[in-house]
């Protein structure tokens, strides 16, 4: 694998889109396009996995002593 997986879905998706448009532009060498293809497939898998496995993370931001502070959201309020 050429690079290690990017840390976020967003970055992976952006890179994937970049790869596709680079391959569309037809300016890559064969070797490079093979490399890009592998990378693209890897990114696709990563994105799909991220989406499938995603658990919504919910935090609450409140100001304490003038400083914003993140705490896990307590979803017991709604019905």
């Amino acid at each position: 694998m050429p690079k290690k997986s990017p840390p976020t879905f967003e970055a992976a998706k952006a890179e994937l889109e970049k790869i596709v448009s680079a391959m569309e532009n037809d300016k890559l060498s064969l070797e490079e396009s093979l490399k890009q293809f592998e990378r693209g497939v890897e990114l696709t898998r990563f994105c799909q996995k991220e989406l499938a496995a995603a658990e919504q993370k919910i935090n609450t931001l409140v100001e304490k002593n003038g400083e914003p502070e993140l705490t896990p959201f307590d979803d017991t309020g709604g019905q």
């Binding site: 995603a54 993370k57 935090n59 609450t60």
Partner: peptide, 11 residues
């Protein structure tokens, strides 16, 4: 719809 995106609640 899209559980991947984190949410911050501003009470």
């Amino acid at each position: 719809r899209f559980p991947l995106v984190p949410i911050i609640v501003y009470p």
